[in-house]
Each structure stands twice: as C-alpha cells, then as structure tokens.
Write a protein that binds this DNA or RNA. Structure first.
Length: 381
RNA sequence: GGGUAGGUAGCAGAGCGGUCAAAUGCAUCAGACUGUAAAUCUGACGCCCUACGGGCUACGGGGGUUCGAAUCCCUCCCUACCCA
C-alpha cells in the first residue's frame, strides 16, 4: 500500500494507495475543514493541482451534523458520503478532532474537558455539550466516508509540564488502542476488505521530549496502523523549528509506512520535514494567509528551486507599495491570478473586500505549494 | 428678512470648565497567522524630540471670563432645516 525510495535530495519519494486512487508522496493537502476549502469551488481546487483534501470530524459532526451526512444521496456511482456532499471525488482524509482538544479546550478551559472516556466539547456554535470518544470519532469518520482516518489523540501545548505530556502520551496510546478496535469493528460490519477499506493513521504525541515521542511512537507501532502522524506543534513557544523532535519521531516510525506531519506548515518547514522523512502534509497557511493578503513567491533569480533558505518569499499584497504595481504577482507562476491579473488589481480587490481577492490569493498559494511538492518529488515543473 | 439646530482630527461622530492630543466607528499604514471558533486578530495613526518620558500647535475666525476653556460670554464667518 506504500512504497518509497530515497530521493537524491535526501527525503523520500513514493506512492500511497488509497481506495480513491494513488497518491505520489510527498504530498500536501489543503484543509477543507468544514467540507470546503474556504472560498474555493472544487474546480478551483483542481486547477491548482491539489489531489487530496483534509476535512474535520469535529466540525462536520457539529455542522451540518452526522445525521445529515449519513443521508447524503448516492451520486454518479459514488456512495453517499462527504465526497458526494462536497462534489470532490479525490481522496479525503478526515482529522479526528484531536486538534480541537488543543485549540479549543486547552486554550479555553470553559470550552470543555478531557477525561479518559473522551473529550467533552462545548459546541462553538451554540454552547451545547458533546462527548467525542475515540470510538465515536472513528464511527463518525466511517459515516463521513473518508479514505484516510485519524485516531483521536490528546495534544498538549509544548510548554506543558512533563508529567502532563506523559499523561497525554498515555492517553493517546489508550485512545489509539480503542480507535484501532472500533476501526476493525466498523470494517467488519461494513464488509470492507483491504482494497475497499480506508486507511487508519495514529498520531505521535510527546511534546518537546524525544523520549516521550519515542515511547509514543513505539507504543503506536506495536498496536499497528497504516501510517503515523506527528501531533502537537512542531515549533516551540518562540516559533523555533524542533529539528531533533521531528527527526527522532520520524526515525521511530517504520520506513514502510507513510509519515504524516499534521498541520505543517510553511514552505520551509515542509522542505525540512521532508528531508527528515515525512511524507504527508496539511496546513491552513496557504489558504488562510492567502485570504489575509499574504502571497508566496518564488525567488525571481532561482525560479522553482529548493536551494537555500531563501528559495521563496512572501508579500502582503495590501501594502501601499503595490498600489500602482501593474506586474503579475509572480511572473513564474501559471495560476489564474498570475496569468490574468496584476498586483495593483489584487490589492484593489482586497481593499474593496471582494471575495474574489481571497479566492485568487488562495489559489495562487495552493499552486505555489503544489509546485513545491512537485519539486520535492523530483518531478518536472 | 425671521426662526431653530449646528460648526471637533481624512470622514462620520462623542465630549460640554480641569483626569482631553480629545471616546467610538470607518478609512489609512504596518504586523501576525502552522491537524481553521480566523474574509480574523494585534499595533500605529496632530507635529517634533535625547521618545513606557518630554516639548509644541490644536476642537470655524477674533476677543473675553477663569488659576485653568473643545467645554462659559461677546462678536464675526459658514452650514442645514423651517417660516416669510
């Protein structure tokens, strides 16, 4: 299901089989958290070259709700599921909602609490209480019909005390075991075989402690999954890239399975992680920052190249300096924005708050990411 | 011609004797954003300086009252609406 070779660049290239098709690794998936890549139509996403998306269990569970997701009608030969709902036929990965434990509960205690049973959330929509257990997280993902699933995990802030990190690793391991059991039960119940079942990933926690990352990874590997993720945050509280943690965690995961760096990252983070053995990435950066006016550009003299730390730069198109700049955002880019519009026009679209601004900028940034991934795979641009 | 309400920073609009270089919103200028509570959030926004402090000029113009005025009085100019 997964095979790789080491590329001349040091990272590895390979292919991952999913029931929705084969993915060349390394690859990047934009976040379609609530079953949409904000502001983009499926045709827009496809035009950037994106092949797989990440949706979110917690957010879809709350809205539109799992009962509706289960009733989505069959379309064009597809089973009724998230693919049909959002009109996306490529591979879908669903995140478990584990990160929402971190971003909602750990940062806002009033939003919920964690027990061994699961995570008790307060809905961000209406304040209602919801319990998401490991079993429930997996069952919901089967209802969503996604092709790659993630176990519910327990991420903690990197500056948490070590005892807390250790407890979170213990819990992540216990939850992974329960997720594994529920996953197998669901597969059996639905008569999935190895060709028709989704893939299951678990997530390595352990904060900034190499020994905890290793303990977590080894524990997860002994349970056995189709792939393993890097959880929590890959930078410290000052924003420094945690090289050793990324390297040692990758090393603790077998070579014959894909390694998924959840939530990573900036272009340079992705390049570094790939060199350390990571194969899959997802992040809100290209779309969120695009909507906020930040655009990724290849360094003009170098074109699409990954050499050096300055192979790309960013601009904030809303800055005054672009007011009368009638050149394309990035002359080396082949996206709709760079082919047809000028910097001055895009700045204008942002100033008048036209949704077209966010759309064109998101597409541009995704195109940048896609070309980055191609370069990492050693493919012709 | 008569009456009424007003004239405050780029705009709108608070303040109506000291704690006012002046609330708030918008606009403007920057910054942040890493498994999306984010079309969001943060900062700056009269001028000058040895800048978590100090100086200067300011609330239509001019003149007063007061220890002290954007705030009170006089006068002039202007605006809106109403009546002739």
């Amino acid at each position: 299901m997964f095979e790789t070779v080491i590329s001349p660049g040091g990272g590895r290239v390979g292919k991952l089989m999913t029931r929705k098709g084969e993915m060349q690794t390394p690859f990047f998936m934009p976040d379609a958290t609530r079953a949409s890549v904000r502001g983009l139509a499926v045709s827009d996403i496809q035009e950037t070259g994106v092949e797989a998306l990440v949706v979110n269990t917690y957010h879809l569970y709350l809205q539109p709700g799992i009962e509706l997701m289960k009733r989505i009608p069959v379309q064009a030969g597809s089973i009724g599921d998230t693919h049909a709902f959002m009109g996306w036929n490529g591979p879908l990965l669903s995140d478990s909602g584990g990160y929402q434990i971190y971003s909602l509960i750990h940062k806002h205690a009033e939003m919920g609490r964690i027990t061994d049973e699961g995570a008790e959330f307060r809905s961000v929509l209406d304040g209602s209480k919801h319990l998401i257990t490991p079993e429930r997280a997996i069952a919901i993902q089967f209802d969503l019909g996604t092709d790659m699933m993630v176990c519910l995990d327990d991420p903690r802030p990197n500056d948490a005390p070590k005892e807390e990190i250790e407890a979170a690793v213990d819990r992540t391991l216990r939850w992974a075991q329960r997720c594994r059991a529920e996953f197998d039960r669901q597969c059996e119940m639905r008569s999935f075989d190895d060709m028709t079942r989704p893939l299951l990933f678990s997530v390595v926690q352990g904060g900034m402690y190499v020994d905890e990352r290793q303990r977590c990874a080894h524990g997860l590997v002994s349970i056995g999954f189709d792939g393993y993720g890097f959880g929590g945050r890959h930078v410290d509280e000052e924003g420094n890239f945690l090289v050793d943690i990324l390297a040692e965690t990758a090393a603790a995961i077998p070579e014959n399975v894909p390694r998924f760096a959840l939530g990573i990252g900036t272009p340079s983070d992705i390049v570094r992680c790939h060199a350390l053995g990571w194969d899959m990435f997802d992040c809100v950066i290209p779309t969120r920052e695009g909507r906020h006016g930040r655009l990724f550009l290849w360094t003009p003299e170098k074109g699409v190249s990954l050499n050096g730390s300055d192979f790309y730069r960013t601009i904030n198109i809303q800055n005054e300096q672009f007011k009368e700049d009638f050149s394309p955002v990035d002359p080396t880019c082949d996206c709709e924005l760079c082919r047809q519009y000028t910097r001055a026009y895009l700045k204008h679209l942002f100033k008048v708050a036209d949704p077209l601004a966010g759309r064109l900028a998101s597409m541009h940034n995704l195109r940048f990411y896609m070309r980055l991934m191609k370069a990492l795979r050693g493919e012709e641009d």
